[in-house]
Write a protein that binds this DNA or RNA. Structure first.
Lengths: 259, 259
DNA sequence: CGTTGAATTGACACCGTTCAACGACAGTGG
DNA sequence: CCACTGTCGTTGAACGGTGTCAATTCAACG
Protein backbone atom coordinates (compact mmCIF):
# COMPACT_ATOMS: atom_id res chain seq x y z
CA UNK A 1 0.00 0.00 0.00
CA UNK A 2 1.36 3.37 -1.01
CA UNK A 3 1.37 5.71 1.90
CA UNK A 4 0.45 9.22 0.95
CA UNK A 5 2.93 11.71 2.26
CA UNK A 6 1.20 14.50 4.12
CA UNK A 7 2.61 17.97 4.52
CA UNK A 8 3.38 17.32 8.17
CA UNK A 9 5.51 14.31 7.43
CA UNK A 10 7.44 16.14 4.72
CA UNK A 11 8.31 18.90 7.13
CA UNK A 12 9.57 16.46 9.72
CA UNK A 13 11.55 14.38 7.27
CA UNK A 14 13.09 17.25 5.34
CA UNK A 15 13.05 20.26 7.67
CA UNK A 16 15.36 22.33 5.47
CA UNK A 17 14.25 21.44 1.97
CA UNK A 18 10.60 20.41 2.16
CA UNK A 19 9.60 23.55 0.31
CA UNK A 20 11.88 22.90 -2.66
CA UNK A 21 9.73 22.62 -5.81
CA UNK A 22 6.66 22.32 -3.62
CA UNK A 23 3.58 22.95 -5.69
CA UNK A 24 5.56 22.28 -8.86
CA UNK A 25 7.39 19.05 -9.49
CA UNK A 26 8.07 17.98 -5.96
CA UNK A 27 5.65 15.10 -6.42
CA UNK A 28 8.07 13.80 -9.06
CA UNK A 29 10.75 13.30 -6.44
CA UNK A 30 11.06 9.93 -4.77
CA UNK A 31 11.92 9.78 -1.07
CA UNK A 32 15.53 8.90 -1.88
CA UNK A 33 15.88 12.06 -3.94
CA UNK A 34 14.27 14.17 -1.28
CA UNK A 35 16.73 12.74 1.20
CA UNK A 36 19.64 13.55 -1.09
CA UNK A 37 18.41 17.12 -1.40
CA UNK A 38 18.17 17.45 2.36
CA UNK A 39 21.66 16.09 2.81
CA UNK A 40 23.08 18.48 0.25
CA UNK A 41 22.70 21.30 2.70
CA UNK A 42 25.85 21.94 4.65
CA UNK A 43 25.96 25.04 6.77
CA UNK A 44 22.75 26.87 7.59
CA UNK A 45 23.27 30.59 7.89
CA UNK A 46 21.13 33.59 8.86
CA UNK A 47 21.33 36.78 6.84
CA UNK A 48 20.38 40.26 7.94
CA UNK A 49 18.47 42.76 5.88
CA UNK A 50 20.43 44.03 2.91
CA UNK A 51 23.29 41.59 3.37
CA UNK A 52 24.89 40.60 0.10
CA UNK A 53 25.27 36.83 -0.19
CA UNK A 54 27.04 36.70 -3.54
CA UNK A 55 28.60 39.62 -5.35
CA UNK A 56 28.57 40.01 -9.06
CA UNK A 57 31.68 38.56 -10.64
CA UNK A 58 32.79 36.62 -7.59
CA UNK A 59 33.62 32.98 -8.17
CA UNK A 60 31.25 30.91 -6.12
CA UNK A 61 32.09 27.52 -4.66
CA UNK A 62 28.65 26.91 -3.29
CA UNK A 63 25.03 27.71 -3.97
CA UNK A 64 22.31 28.30 -1.48
CA UNK A 65 18.75 27.40 -0.85
CA UNK A 66 16.46 29.95 0.70
CA UNK A 67 14.90 28.42 3.79
CA UNK A 68 13.21 31.41 5.36
CA UNK A 69 12.61 34.98 4.23
CA UNK A 70 12.99 36.80 0.95
CA UNK A 71 15.93 37.52 -1.32
CA UNK A 72 16.54 39.65 -4.40
CA UNK A 73 18.79 39.54 -7.40
CA UNK A 74 20.02 43.00 -8.29
CA UNK A 75 22.06 44.47 -11.08
CA UNK A 76 23.52 47.88 -11.69
CA UNK A 77 23.21 49.49 -15.06
CA UNK A 78 24.37 53.00 -15.72
CA UNK A 79 24.85 53.66 -12.05
CA UNK A 80 21.38 52.92 -10.80
CA UNK A 81 20.47 49.75 -8.99
CA UNK A 82 17.55 47.59 -9.93
CA UNK A 83 15.98 44.35 -8.84
CA UNK A 84 15.59 41.68 -11.49
CA UNK A 85 14.03 38.94 -9.42
CA UNK A 86 12.58 38.03 -6.09
CA UNK A 87 12.87 34.78 -4.18
CA UNK A 88 10.72 33.08 -1.62
CA UNK A 89 11.40 30.15 0.72
CA UNK A 90 12.07 26.91 -1.12
CA UNK A 91 13.88 28.59 -3.99
CA UNK A 92 17.33 27.33 -4.81
CA UNK A 93 18.41 30.95 -5.10
CA UNK A 94 21.75 30.92 -6.76
CA UNK A 95 21.86 27.47 -8.25
CA UNK A 96 22.67 29.41 -11.40
CA UNK A 97 26.09 29.98 -9.91
CA UNK A 98 26.78 26.26 -10.14
CA UNK A 99 26.84 26.16 -13.92
CA UNK A 100 27.80 29.78 -14.48
CA UNK A 101 30.57 29.89 -11.87
CA UNK A 102 30.53 33.64 -11.59
CA UNK A 103 27.29 35.54 -11.45
CA UNK A 104 26.20 38.52 -13.47
CA UNK A 105 24.30 40.00 -10.54
CA UNK A 106 24.25 40.39 -6.77
CA UNK A 107 22.17 38.18 -4.53
CA UNK A 108 20.83 40.18 -1.60
CA UNK A 109 18.79 39.47 1.49
CA UNK A 110 15.51 41.34 1.66
CA UNK A 111 14.72 41.41 5.34
CA UNK A 112 16.04 38.77 7.72
CA UNK A 113 16.41 35.36 6.19
CA UNK A 114 17.94 31.94 6.55
CA UNK A 115 19.77 30.02 3.87
CA UNK A 116 21.30 26.58 3.47
CA UNK A 117 24.63 26.31 1.68
CA UNK A 118 25.29 23.56 -0.85
CA UNK A 119 28.83 22.85 -1.92
CA UNK A 120 29.31 22.59 -5.67
CA UNK A 121 31.32 19.41 -5.24
CA UNK A 122 28.19 17.76 -3.89
CA UNK A 123 26.30 18.91 -6.93
CA UNK A 124 28.98 17.38 -9.13
CA UNK A 125 28.22 14.05 -7.51
CA UNK A 126 24.51 14.48 -8.14
CA UNK A 127 25.20 15.22 -11.78
CA UNK A 128 27.27 12.06 -12.06
CA UNK A 129 24.87 9.71 -10.37
CA UNK A 130 21.37 11.17 -10.39
CA UNK A 131 20.12 12.08 -13.85
CA UNK A 132 16.52 12.44 -12.77
CA UNK A 133 17.34 14.71 -9.87
CA UNK A 134 19.68 16.64 -12.15
CA UNK A 135 16.81 17.26 -14.45
CA UNK A 136 14.72 18.58 -11.61
CA UNK A 137 17.48 20.92 -10.53
CA UNK A 138 17.75 22.08 -14.09
CA UNK A 139 14.00 22.52 -14.15
CA UNK A 140 14.15 24.73 -11.08
CA UNK A 141 16.59 27.10 -12.78
CA UNK A 142 14.42 27.22 -15.88
CA UNK A 143 11.54 28.22 -13.67
CA UNK A 144 13.57 31.31 -12.83
CA UNK A 145 14.08 31.94 -16.53
CA UNK A 146 10.34 31.65 -17.15
CA UNK A 147 9.70 34.18 -14.41
CA UNK A 148 12.31 36.48 -15.93
CA UNK A 149 10.48 36.31 -19.24
CA UNK A 150 7.20 37.19 -17.64
CA UNK A 151 8.82 40.17 -15.96
CA UNK A 152 10.16 41.30 -19.30
CA UNK A 153 6.69 41.07 -20.77
CA UNK A 154 5.28 42.89 -17.78
CA UNK A 155 7.77 45.73 -18.11
CA UNK A 156 7.16 45.97 -21.83
CA UNK A 157 3.41 46.08 -21.67
CA UNK A 158 1.98 47.17 -18.36
CA UNK A 159 1.99 50.50 -16.68
CA UNK A 160 3.01 51.23 -13.13
CA UNK A 161 -0.09 50.26 -11.16
CA UNK A 162 -0.58 47.10 -13.17
CA UNK A 163 3.05 46.14 -12.71
CA UNK A 164 2.77 46.25 -8.94
CA UNK A 165 -0.47 44.35 -9.07
CA UNK A 166 1.26 41.71 -11.16
CA UNK A 167 4.15 41.39 -8.72
CA UNK A 168 1.74 41.20 -5.81
CA UNK A 169 -0.23 38.46 -7.51
CA UNK A 170 2.94 36.55 -8.30
CA UNK A 171 4.37 36.76 -4.78
CA UNK A 172 1.07 35.71 -3.33
CA UNK A 173 0.80 32.73 -5.64
CA UNK A 174 4.36 31.64 -5.00
CA UNK A 175 3.96 31.92 -1.25
CA UNK A 176 0.83 29.83 -1.38
CA UNK A 177 2.65 27.14 -3.32
CA UNK A 178 5.06 26.71 -0.43
CA UNK A 179 2.39 26.87 2.27
CA UNK A 180 2.93 30.48 3.23
CA UNK A 181 0.56 33.43 3.20
CA UNK A 182 -3.08 33.40 4.05
CA UNK A 183 -6.09 34.05 1.89
CA UNK A 184 -6.40 37.79 2.34
CA UNK A 185 -3.11 38.97 3.80
CA UNK A 186 0.59 38.42 3.26
CA UNK A 187 3.56 39.85 5.09
CA UNK A 188 6.69 40.83 3.23
CA UNK A 189 9.84 42.78 4.09
CA UNK A 190 9.39 44.90 0.97
CA UNK A 191 9.46 48.68 1.00
CA UNK A 192 7.98 50.94 -1.62
CA UNK A 193 11.50 51.69 -2.79
CA UNK A 194 12.25 48.03 -3.45
CA UNK A 195 8.92 47.52 -5.18
CA UNK A 196 9.83 50.49 -7.35
CA UNK A 197 13.15 48.89 -8.24
CA UNK A 198 11.32 45.75 -9.30
CA UNK A 199 8.85 47.68 -11.43
CA UNK A 200 11.30 50.04 -13.05
CA UNK A 201 9.72 53.21 -11.71
CA UNK A 202 10.68 55.77 -9.07
CA UNK A 203 9.65 55.20 -5.49
CA UNK A 204 7.62 58.38 -5.65
CA UNK A 205 5.57 57.06 -8.50
CA UNK A 206 5.30 53.71 -6.77
CA UNK A 207 3.68 55.55 -3.91
CA UNK A 208 1.11 56.99 -6.28
CA UNK A 209 0.52 53.63 -7.93
CA UNK A 210 -0.11 52.04 -4.54
CA UNK A 211 -2.45 54.91 -3.76
CA UNK A 212 -4.39 54.11 -6.89
CA UNK A 213 -4.70 50.42 -5.97
CA UNK A 214 -5.90 51.48 -2.54
CA UNK A 215 -8.43 53.99 -3.84
CA UNK A 216 -9.84 51.53 -6.34
CA UNK A 217 -10.10 48.87 -3.65
CA UNK A 218 -7.82 46.47 -5.49
CA UNK A 219 -5.13 46.04 -2.88
CA UNK A 220 -3.82 47.72 0.20
CA UNK A 221 -0.09 47.69 0.84
CA UNK A 222 1.15 49.23 4.07
CA UNK A 223 4.66 48.83 5.44
CA UNK A 224 5.18 45.39 4.04
CA UNK A 225 1.72 44.06 4.69
CA UNK A 226 -0.41 43.37 1.65
CA UNK A 227 -4.12 43.02 2.02
CA UNK A 228 -6.89 42.43 -0.48
CA UNK A 229 -10.55 41.52 -0.37
CA UNK A 230 -10.65 40.05 -3.84
CA UNK A 231 -7.58 38.38 -5.22
CA UNK A 232 -9.25 37.60 -8.51
CA UNK A 233 -9.63 41.28 -9.08
CA UNK A 234 -6.02 41.96 -8.17
CA UNK A 235 -4.89 39.31 -10.62
CA UNK A 236 -7.13 40.57 -13.37
CA UNK A 237 -5.91 44.11 -12.91
CA UNK A 238 -2.31 42.96 -13.15
CA UNK A 239 -3.02 40.75 -16.19
CA UNK A 240 -1.68 37.90 -14.11
CA UNK A 241 -1.86 34.40 -15.58
CA UNK A 242 -0.04 31.93 -13.32
CA UNK A 243 0.78 29.41 -16.02
CA UNK A 244 4.35 30.68 -16.28
CA UNK A 245 4.91 29.48 -12.74
CA UNK A 246 4.36 25.89 -13.80
CA UNK A 247 2.24 24.98 -10.81
CA UNK A 248 0.90 21.46 -10.43
CA UNK A 249 -2.67 22.44 -11.02
CA UNK A 250 -1.68 23.85 -14.40
CA UNK A 251 -2.07 21.88 -17.59
CA UNK A 252 -0.87 18.80 -15.83
CA UNK A 253 1.30 17.74 -18.70
CA UNK A 254 4.38 17.75 -16.56
CA UNK A 255 3.41 14.38 -15.24
CA UNK A 256 5.53 13.01 -18.02
CA UNK A 257 8.50 14.27 -16.12
CA UNK A 258 7.43 12.29 -13.12
CA UNK A 259 9.58 9.41 -14.22
CA UNK B 1 51.35 17.05 -29.92
CA UNK B 2 48.04 18.73 -29.38
CA UNK B 3 46.60 19.88 -32.63
CA UNK B 4 44.89 23.21 -32.33
CA UNK B 5 41.46 23.07 -33.88
CA UNK B 6 41.00 25.89 -36.34
CA UNK B 7 37.66 27.37 -37.24
CA UNK B 8 37.77 25.75 -40.63
CA UNK B 9 38.16 22.28 -39.25
CA UNK B 10 35.34 22.75 -36.78
CA UNK B 11 33.00 23.75 -39.55
CA UNK B 12 33.86 20.69 -41.58
CA UNK B 13 33.61 18.29 -38.69
CA UNK B 14 30.43 19.68 -37.17
CA UNK B 15 28.62 21.48 -39.97
CA UNK B 16 25.37 21.82 -38.01
CA UNK B 17 26.55 22.52 -34.50
CA UNK B 18 29.95 24.18 -34.74
CA UNK B 19 28.50 27.44 -33.53
CA UNK B 20 27.04 25.95 -30.35
CA UNK B 21 28.61 27.74 -27.35
CA UNK B 22 31.23 29.18 -29.65
CA UNK B 23 32.98 32.06 -27.93
CA UNK B 24 31.71 30.80 -24.58
CA UNK B 25 32.50 27.35 -23.28
CA UNK B 26 32.93 25.51 -26.53
CA UNK B 27 36.61 25.10 -25.72
CA UNK B 28 35.52 23.02 -22.76
CA UNK B 29 34.02 20.40 -25.06
CA UNK B 30 36.16 17.47 -26.09
CA UNK B 31 35.85 16.15 -29.67
CA UNK B 32 33.73 13.25 -28.49
CA UNK B 33 31.21 15.65 -26.97
CA UNK B 34 31.18 17.81 -30.06
CA UNK B 35 30.46 14.69 -32.09
CA UNK B 36 27.63 13.73 -29.78
CA UNK B 37 26.13 17.18 -30.17
CA UNK B 38 26.34 16.96 -33.94
CA UNK B 39 24.68 13.55 -33.92
CA UNK B 40 21.88 14.78 -31.69
CA UNK B 41 20.44 16.69 -34.62
CA UNK B 42 17.81 14.68 -36.44
CA UNK B 43 15.79 16.49 -39.04
CA UNK B 44 17.02 19.82 -40.38
CA UNK B 45 14.18 22.13 -41.26
CA UNK B 46 13.83 25.54 -42.87
CA UNK B 47 11.42 28.08 -41.42
CA UNK B 48 9.88 31.03 -43.17
CA UNK B 49 9.50 34.49 -41.70
CA UNK B 50 7.00 34.61 -38.88
CA UNK B 51 6.53 30.86 -38.74
CA UNK B 52 5.78 29.64 -35.23
CA UNK B 53 7.98 26.71 -34.27
CA UNK B 54 6.51 26.01 -30.85
CA UNK B 55 3.32 27.39 -29.48
CA UNK B 56 2.82 28.35 -25.89
CA UNK B 57 1.38 25.50 -23.89
CA UNK B 58 2.04 22.82 -26.48
CA UNK B 59 3.80 19.73 -25.23
CA UNK B 60 7.10 19.46 -27.05
CA UNK B 61 8.82 16.18 -27.84
CA UNK B 62 11.88 17.80 -29.29
CA UNK B 63 13.97 20.91 -29.01
CA UNK B 64 15.78 22.71 -31.76
CA UNK B 65 19.08 24.33 -32.43
CA UNK B 66 19.17 27.43 -34.55
CA UNK B 67 21.57 26.83 -37.44
CA UNK B 68 20.93 29.87 -39.61
CA UNK B 69 18.92 33.04 -39.14
CA UNK B 70 17.20 34.67 -36.19
CA UNK B 71 14.38 33.62 -33.90
CA UNK B 72 12.30 35.30 -31.20
CA UNK B 73 10.49 34.25 -28.09
CA UNK B 74 7.23 36.07 -27.74
CA UNK B 75 4.53 36.28 -25.11
CA UNK B 76 1.12 37.88 -25.01
CA UNK B 77 0.07 39.83 -21.99
CA UNK B 78 -3.18 41.69 -21.85
CA UNK B 79 -3.73 41.23 -25.56
CA UNK B 80 -0.58 42.80 -26.90
CA UNK B 81 2.32 40.79 -28.18
CA UNK B 82 5.87 41.33 -27.07
CA UNK B 83 9.28 39.85 -27.69
CA UNK B 84 11.16 38.63 -24.66
CA UNK B 85 14.30 37.32 -26.31
CA UNK B 86 16.22 37.06 -29.53
CA UNK B 87 18.30 34.18 -30.81
CA UNK B 88 21.20 33.93 -33.19
CA UNK B 89 22.80 30.95 -34.95
CA UNK B 90 24.34 28.47 -32.54
CA UNK B 91 21.68 28.99 -29.89
CA UNK B 92 19.89 25.91 -28.63
CA UNK B 93 16.68 27.86 -28.91
CA UNK B 94 14.09 25.90 -27.03
CA UNK B 95 16.21 23.61 -24.98
CA UNK B 96 14.10 25.01 -22.16
CA UNK B 97 11.29 22.88 -23.50
CA UNK B 98 13.23 19.77 -22.57
CA UNK B 99 13.01 20.31 -18.84
CA UNK B 100 9.85 22.40 -18.85
CA UNK B 101 7.89 20.17 -21.25
CA UNK B 102 5.44 22.87 -22.17
CA UNK B 103 6.57 26.38 -22.84
CA UNK B 104 5.25 29.62 -21.46
CA UNK B 105 5.88 31.45 -24.73
CA UNK B 106 5.91 31.11 -28.50
CA UNK B 107 9.09 30.50 -30.44
CA UNK B 108 8.94 32.33 -33.75
CA UNK B 109 11.16 32.65 -36.81
CA UNK B 110 12.35 36.17 -37.51
CA UNK B 111 13.15 36.10 -41.18
CA UNK B 112 14.09 32.91 -42.99
CA UNK B 113 15.97 30.45 -40.89
CA UNK B 114 17.14 26.89 -40.54
CA UNK B 115 16.87 24.73 -37.46
CA UNK B 116 18.01 21.28 -36.38
CA UNK B 117 15.62 19.19 -34.35
CA UNK B 118 16.77 17.19 -31.34
CA UNK B 119 14.54 14.49 -29.94
CA UNK B 120 14.10 14.64 -26.17
CA UNK B 121 14.76 10.91 -25.93
CA UNK B 122 18.27 11.57 -27.18
CA UNK B 123 18.71 14.20 -24.49
CA UNK B 124 17.59 11.68 -21.90
CA UNK B 125 20.50 9.50 -22.97
CA UNK B 126 22.91 12.39 -22.67
CA UNK B 127 21.66 13.09 -19.17
CA UNK B 128 22.21 9.47 -18.22
CA UNK B 129 25.68 9.08 -19.64
CA UNK B 130 27.31 12.48 -20.12
CA UNK B 131 27.38 14.56 -16.95
CA UNK B 132 29.89 17.04 -18.32
CA UNK B 133 27.96 17.65 -21.50
CA UNK B 134 24.78 17.88 -19.44
CA UNK B 135 26.36 20.64 -17.46
CA UNK B 136 27.22 22.49 -20.63
CA UNK B 137 23.68 22.17 -21.91
CA UNK B 138 22.46 23.44 -18.58
CA UNK B 139 24.96 26.28 -18.86
CA UNK B 140 23.56 27.25 -22.24
CA UNK B 141 20.08 27.63 -20.82
CA UNK B 142 21.40 29.70 -17.94
CA UNK B 143 23.01 31.97 -20.46
CA UNK B 144 19.50 32.70 -21.68
CA UNK B 145 18.44 33.45 -18.13
CA UNK B 146 21.36 35.85 -17.72
CA UNK B 147 20.33 37.65 -20.89
CA UNK B 148 16.77 37.82 -19.61
CA UNK B 149 18.02 39.49 -16.46
CA UNK B 150 19.98 42.04 -18.40
CA UNK B 151 16.90 42.83 -20.45
CA UNK B 152 14.92 43.35 -17.28
CA UNK B 153 17.55 45.75 -16.03
CA UNK B 154 17.57 47.47 -19.37
CA UNK B 155 13.82 47.93 -19.36
CA UNK B 156 13.86 49.15 -15.78
CA UNK B 157 16.59 51.71 -16.21
CA UNK B 158 17.14 52.87 -19.75
CA UNK B 159 14.99 54.97 -21.99
CA UNK B 160 14.01 54.21 -25.53
CA UNK B 161 17.10 55.23 -27.50
CA UNK B 162 19.44 53.63 -25.01
CA UNK B 163 17.42 50.44 -25.06
CA UNK B 164 17.81 50.03 -28.80
CA UNK B 165 21.49 50.85 -28.55
CA UNK B 166 21.81 48.15 -25.92
CA UNK B 167 20.05 45.58 -28.08
CA UNK B 168 22.16 46.52 -31.05
CA UNK B 169 25.35 46.15 -29.05
CA UNK B 170 24.19 42.80 -27.73
CA UNK B 171 23.25 41.40 -31.12
CA UNK B 172 26.50 42.58 -32.59
CA UNK B 173 28.51 40.99 -29.83
CA UNK B 174 26.65 37.72 -30.03
CA UNK B 175 27.01 37.53 -33.79
CA UNK B 176 30.72 38.12 -33.52
CA UNK B 177 31.02 35.31 -31.03
CA UNK B 178 29.71 32.87 -33.64
CA UNK B 179 31.78 34.31 -36.50
CA UNK B 180 29.03 36.40 -38.01
CA UNK B 181 28.82 40.13 -38.64
CA UNK B 182 31.62 42.39 -39.72
CA UNK B 183 33.29 45.23 -37.89
CA UNK B 184 31.04 48.06 -39.00
CA UNK B 185 27.91 46.49 -40.43
CA UNK B 186 25.50 43.71 -39.55
CA UNK B 187 22.47 42.47 -41.40
CA UNK B 188 19.35 41.40 -39.54
CA UNK B 189 15.77 40.56 -40.50
CA UNK B 190 14.49 42.94 -37.84
CA UNK B 191 11.91 45.61 -38.50
CA UNK B 192 11.31 48.71 -36.42
CA UNK B 193 8.12 47.11 -35.17
CA UNK B 194 9.97 44.06 -33.87
CA UNK B 195 12.66 46.21 -32.29
CA UNK B 196 9.86 48.13 -30.61
CA UNK B 197 8.40 44.90 -29.24
CA UNK B 198 11.79 44.03 -27.78
CA UNK B 199 12.17 47.44 -26.17
CA UNK B 200 8.68 47.79 -24.83
CA UNK B 201 7.83 50.92 -26.82
CA UNK B 202 5.60 51.66 -29.79
CA UNK B 203 6.97 51.32 -33.29
CA UNK B 204 6.37 55.01 -33.83
CA UNK B 205 8.54 55.91 -30.91
CA UNK B 206 11.10 53.38 -32.04
CA UNK B 207 11.29 55.32 -35.26
CA UNK B 208 12.06 58.48 -33.33
CA UNK B 209 14.64 56.71 -31.19
CA UNK B 210 16.40 55.39 -34.29
CA UNK B 211 16.27 58.88 -35.72
CA UNK B 212 18.03 60.15 -32.62
CA UNK B 213 20.79 57.55 -32.90
CA UNK B 214 21.22 58.52 -36.53
CA UNK B 215 21.32 62.26 -35.85
CA UNK B 216 23.83 61.83 -33.08
CA UNK B 217 25.97 59.62 -35.27
CA UNK B 218 25.77 56.68 -32.90
CA UNK B 219 24.23 54.11 -35.21
CA UNK B 220 22.34 53.93 -38.44
CA UNK B 221 19.66 51.29 -38.81
CA UNK B 222 17.90 51.03 -42.16
CA UNK B 223 15.65 48.18 -43.17
CA UNK B 224 17.47 45.55 -41.23
CA UNK B 225 20.98 46.78 -41.84
CA UNK B 226 22.80 48.24 -38.89
CA UNK B 227 25.84 50.41 -39.44
CA UNK B 228 28.11 52.25 -37.07
CA UNK B 229 31.43 54.01 -37.26
CA UNK B 230 32.23 53.61 -33.61
CA UNK B 231 30.99 50.60 -31.76
CA UNK B 232 32.53 51.72 -28.51
CA UNK B 233 30.32 54.75 -28.62
CA UNK B 234 27.25 52.66 -29.38
CA UNK B 235 28.00 50.42 -26.44
CA UNK B 236 28.65 53.30 -24.10
CA UNK B 237 25.41 54.98 -25.09
CA UNK B 238 23.47 51.78 -24.42
CA UNK B 239 25.28 51.17 -21.10
CA UNK B 240 26.33 47.85 -22.55
CA UNK B 241 28.70 45.70 -20.55
CA UNK B 242 29.15 42.30 -22.21
CA UNK B 243 30.04 40.40 -19.06
CA UNK B 244 26.53 38.99 -18.79
CA UNK B 245 27.15 37.12 -22.03
CA UNK B 246 29.89 35.07 -20.39
CA UNK B 247 32.26 35.30 -23.34
CA UNK B 248 35.63 33.57 -23.20
CA UNK B 249 37.58 36.77 -23.04
CA UNK B 250 35.70 37.72 -19.90
CA UNK B 251 37.13 37.07 -16.46
CA UNK B 252 38.36 33.71 -17.59
CA UNK B 253 37.28 32.02 -14.43
CA UNK B 254 35.09 29.61 -16.28
CA UNK B 255 38.13 27.58 -17.12
CA UNK B 256 37.29 25.67 -14.01
CA UNK B 257 34.41 24.26 -15.91
CA UNK B 258 36.72 23.03 -18.59
CA UNK B 259 37.02 19.70 -16.87
C1' DC C 1 3.67 50.64 -62.67
C1' DG C 2 0.58 49.76 -59.07
C1' DT C 3 0.41 47.45 -54.66
C1' DT C 4 1.84 46.60 -50.17
C1' DG C 5 4.20 46.69 -45.90
C1' DA C 6 7.49 49.52 -43.63
C1' DA C 7 9.18 53.94 -42.28
C1' DT C 8 8.36 58.86 -41.24
C1' DT C 9 6.28 63.07 -39.44
C1' DG C 10 3.31 66.39 -36.55
C1' DA C 11 -0.02 67.60 -32.91
C1' DC C 12 -1.66 66.62 -28.58
C1' DA C 13 -2.70 63.99 -24.31
C1' DC C 14 -0.95 61.24 -20.67
C1' DC C 15 2.19 58.74 -17.74
C1' DG C 16 6.14 58.99 -15.12
C1' DT C 17 10.23 61.87 -13.39
C1' DT C 18 12.26 65.34 -10.85
C1' DC C 19 12.86 68.40 -7.04
C1' DA C 20 11.45 70.00 -2.84
C1' DA C 21 9.00 69.79 1.19
C1' DC C 22 6.35 67.59 4.74
C1' DG C 23 4.26 63.73 7.68
C1' DA C 24 4.24 59.22 10.00
C1' DC C 25 6.30 55.82 12.49
C1' DA C 26 9.83 52.83 15.17
C1' DG C 27 13.84 52.70 17.76
C1' DT C 28 16.98 55.11 20.76
C1' DG C 29 18.60 57.22 24.78
C1' DG C 30 17.76 60.62 28.23
C1' DC D 1 7.73 59.23 29.78
C1' DC D 2 9.41 62.25 26.32
C1' DA D 3 12.48 64.24 22.81
C1' DC D 4 15.47 62.87 19.16
C1' DT D 5 16.61 60.68 14.88
C1' DG D 6 16.41 58.22 10.69
C1' DT D 7 13.87 55.68 7.48
C1' DC D 8 9.91 55.29 5.06
C1' DG D 9 5.92 57.19 3.16
C1' DT D 10 3.15 61.15 1.20
C1' DT D 11 2.05 65.23 -1.48
C1' DG D 12 2.25 69.16 -5.10
C1' DA D 13 3.92 71.44 -9.29
C1' DA D 14 6.65 71.68 -13.41
C1' DC D 15 8.85 69.16 -16.88
C1' DG D 16 9.96 65.64 -20.26
C1' DG D 17 9.50 61.08 -22.40
C1' DT D 18 6.24 58.14 -24.66
C1' DG D 19 1.62 56.91 -26.53
C1' DT D 20 -2.00 57.85 -29.70
C1' DC D 21 -4.14 59.04 -34.05
C1' DA D 22 -3.95 60.34 -38.58
C1' DA D 23 -1.69 61.38 -42.69
C1' DT D 24 2.23 60.92 -45.84
C1' DT D 25 6.47 59.08 -47.92
C1' DC D 26 9.49 55.41 -49.11
C1' DA D 27 11.32 50.83 -50.75
C1' DA D 28 10.63 46.35 -52.45
C1' DC D 29 8.43 43.45 -55.59
C1' DG D 30 5.34 41.27 -58.75
Amino acid sequence: MLKRCTGEEERDLYPLTWRFLKGRLRHAMVPREKAIMEELIGEVRPLSDGEILVRRGEVAGSSSMLIEGFMLRAIDLSGRRSAVSLHVPGDFVDLHAYALKRLDHDVVASGECKIGLVDHLRLDEVLQTEPHLTRLLWFSTLLDAAIHREWIGKLEQLQAAQRVAHIFAEIWYRLNMVDLGSEKVIRTPLTQAVLAQMCGITSIHMNRALGQLRREGIADFRRGTLYTEDRTRLEAFGAFDPSYLYGDEGLGVQDELSR
